[in-house]
Every structure is written in structure tokens, then in C-alpha cells.
């Protein structure tokens, strides 16, 4: 799976820490994503995976540590500025613009790259019209890629669950990201849908030349497609490496299934 990986780091997180009062949500988290990488972030519930996404995208500011996108330091920037810099995400608990059409959900996100301003929109200048047409064209292409173009004019909230997840990805890609953070993209999907989503993620990574960081509970998926996996427990990184190493790491087995003397034999199967 190392085909598209080059040596240039796009996302660097160094020693990130965040505490909510006495609770250490994330402690000393470091990660380097290279261009075209597909990395996984796993761990039991409450391990701090989504909190790390929120730190990377600027919903939270870290107590310590630094985040770089390419050469740009992201600390202190708001989520919108980070989206502009090239960081896009989906949400675990889907957050679409429910009343808007599927197409408008994607067009809204395209707006982050739009150059013509409010005055151009109100006067409908030729430049604005050209850009608006380009936005619609690109949005339709994105919906096509994700396989939901047929539903472009439906309300986003009326989409079936799987399509809502696809729309979240289309919307994130519309911002023309360098790094795409996917928060449980196959949660609640059946085997067939999971299979389709897996090929989609692999295709997106190549077509959009984007580094992908994936949170997922589906171990099969993570082990199969990720070049690099980081395992978290209670905010701490307990293991990092390629799939084969992670599967046999005693700390990981313990985090998921308890100490070896409790249920060691079942543990190995469960994680694999």
C-alpha cells in the first residue's frame, strides 16, 4: 500500500496534549502524515480519537504541542482558516446542512476556494458567473465520484444513512484538501456498503492526491487499507506501526480485551 507515499510530510503533529480539567484527553500525541498516505487511528471508545481530530481541525486548541500543515503552523488558527489551509474532515455524528439540497451542501464547501466576493455576487459580474458555474460543475463531479449525483436536488436530511456519509466525504473533498480526516466512515454500514466505501477511500486517496487519516472501529478495514496505524488508549499512544506489528502488540491486545491472563486466546482473534 505504499505506492503513493512520497517522503514529503503534509501533516505533522508534535507532542499534542489536551486536558479537560483533571481529565487528560490527549497526552503527548505525535503523528506525521506524508503526501498520499493512508493512516489509521484506532482505540477503544473514549480513547481520544475524535478529540485528536478536533485538535487537528481547530475545534480545540492544544495545551501543548504544535501542528503543521506542510510548512504552515496551524496553532491558534480557527477551523475555517485550517480548512482554507487544506484540512478537511467528516463527522462521526453526521453534520450535514440538512435543509439544503445535496448539491448545495457540496457547493457551500466549494465556496472556500471562491475568489469573487459579495459585491460580485450581488452584481452578478461575468467573473462571478464563471466561478458559480465552475462551482456547480465541480460539485456535480464530486457527487458523481461518490455515486450520489442522482440525488443532487434532494434535501440532505432525506438521504439514507449511507448516502449521508458519502455526502460528508464529497463535501470535505470540495474544499480541495491536502489532508482528509475521516471519522468512522463505515460506521453503521453493512458488509456490502463497507466494501464499496473501502474502494472509494482508496480511489479518493489517489484521484485527489490527498493524505487520509482514518478513525474506524472496523478492524478488518483498518488493517487492510492503512499503511500506518496509531493505537490510542486513555489519550496515550500505546502502539504505532504497520498492521502486522499492531496485531501482535501485547499492549494493544490488552487495551481492547483486558490483561492476557483474563482472556488471552480470544483476544488475538478479536483484534485480527
Amino acid at each position: 500500500m505504499s505506492t503513493a507515499v512520497t517522503s514529503e510530510p503534509v501533516l505533522t503533529a508534535q507532542h499534542l496534549s489536551l486536558a479537560f480539567g483533571g481529565l487528560k484527553a490527549v497526552a503527548d500525541f505525535s503523528l506525521t502524515l506524508r503526501a498520499g498516505a493512508l493512516a489509521g487511528l484506532i482505540g477503544p471508545n473514549g480513547a481520544g480519537k475524535t478529540t485528536i481530530f478536533n485538535l487537528l481541525t481547530g475545534v480545540y486548541q492544544p495545551d501543548q504541542g504544535e501542528i503543521f500543515l506542510g510548512k504552515q503552523r496551524l496553532n491558534g488558527l480557527k477551523p475555517s482558516a485550517r480548512a482554507k489551509a487544506g484540512m478537511a474532515r467528516t463527522f462521526q455524528n453526521i453534520r450535514l446542512f440538512g435543509e439544503l439540497s445535496v448539491l448545495d451542501n457540496v457547493r457551500t464547501a466549494c465556496g472556500v476556494r471562491a475568489k469573487s466576493g459579495l459585491v460580485g455576487a450581488l452584481l452578478r459580474t461575468p467573473g462571478w458567473r464563471a466561478e458559480e458555474r465552475a462551482i456547480t460543475e465541480r460539485s456535480m463531479d464530486l457527487l458523481q465520484t461518490l455515486g450520489i449525483a442522482g440525488r443532487a436536488h434532494e434535501q440532505a436530511k432525506s438521504l439514507p444513512y449511507g448516502d449521508q456519509r458519502r455526502l460528508e466525504i464529497a463535501r470535505a473533498l470540495a474544499t480541495e484538501p491536502k489532508v482528509l480526516l475521516l471519522d468512522e466512515p463505515v460506521a453503521g454500514m453493512n458488509t456490502q456498503e463497507k466494501h464499496a466505501m473501502r474502494s472509494m477511500i482508496q480511489q479518493i486517496r489517489v484521484d485527489f492526491e490527498v493524505a487520509v487519516l482514518l478513525i474506524e472501529h472496523d478492524m478488518g478495514l483498518v488493517m487492510e487499507i492503512c499503511d500506518h496505524i496509531t493505537v490510542l488508549d486513555h489519550g496515550t499512544t500505546i502502539a504505532a506501526g504497520v498492521a502486522a506489528d499492531i496485531q501482535n502488540d501485547p499492549a494493544v491486545i490488552e487495551a481492547y480485551l483486558g490483561a492476557p491472563d483474563d482472556a488471552a486466546s480470544e483476544g488475538a482473534d478479536g483484534v485480527a
Partner: peptide, 14 residues
Amino acid sequence: LAVRENEVAAEAMG
């Protein structure tokens, strides 16, 4: 409209 629909998502989409 995005701000009305979901402020967190709007901010995350730039």
C-alpha cells in the same frame, strides 16, 4: 445558510 444549519460543520468547511 450553512451557519444556520450547522455552525460547527460550516466552520469546518471553511
